[in-house]
Amino acid sequence: MDAIALTDVSKSYGNVLAVDGLNLAVEAGRTVALLGPNGAGKSTSINMMLGLIRPSGGRVEILGGSPDAAVARGEIGAMLQSGELIGELTVRELVDFVRRLYPEPLGLDEILRVADLTELARRRADKLSGGQAQRVRFALAIAGAPKLLVLDEPTAAMDVESRLRFWKSMRDYAAEGRTVLFATHYLEEADENSDRVIVITRGRVVADGTAAQIKSGISDQVVRFTLGGQPVAGLDGLPGVSAAEISQDVVTLRTTDPDATVAALYRGTSLEIRDLRIIGADLEDAFLALTRES
């Protein structure tokens, strides 16, 4: 049984299609990153998985049933994108309150330890820094020992140090065989903390695999040069070129074989090429290529 199964799911707001025929399945026990730029439909998809919003079409199945049923059984824990705490309550009071809502929660001390909050347990929520409040929200998400943990851009508002500590906490939790799905628009986060990356853009899945596969699938390199006012027709037909872009006088060719492309550029055309550079692909490039292709 898949922990998450979305079949042809769409969601529109008026004329805006936020999620457009999304299909994805996540096996139990995996840690999956949902990667995409802002506005890709990540939060909308997550909110549908949690039953907070209803899809306009298609079917959302969580742990073999409806999202509402999974939430009611206490099998889901979630850290939503925004959410303030109750300022007058202490960290310990908040965590204890939420854990008692679940049928088989983790122990209070264990939650505080995993979320790195033991030292802050007695502090009032309105006296926490942004990163500390995020850790409390993570603690609330894991408090019920959910089978499925969903995190929507969990490290927003955290500094570098807090991020590292946060991901360690997340991996500790996932290590116990639980399913984790997190949304992010940081490639490194997806790369370092998941065993599968699903890339979505404009509400559709555009790539799905391990971070390494996604990188190798987009092994394109970039050839960039200045062309001045010369005609640009035919550049996208050069050997190896998968995409060509012209912005002002600068041409950017995405190519799987930069040697062949450059050779053909010099031998096969009479263009006057200046400032030629070959740039290797990194994750950021891979990501941009994926988002552009869709």
Partner: peptide, 17 residues
Amino acid sequence: QERQSGWLRQLRVTPLP
């Protein structure tokens, strides 16, 4: 405030009916 700040949403993803 709870409706606006997201606390209600947080409660909605717990088993609390």
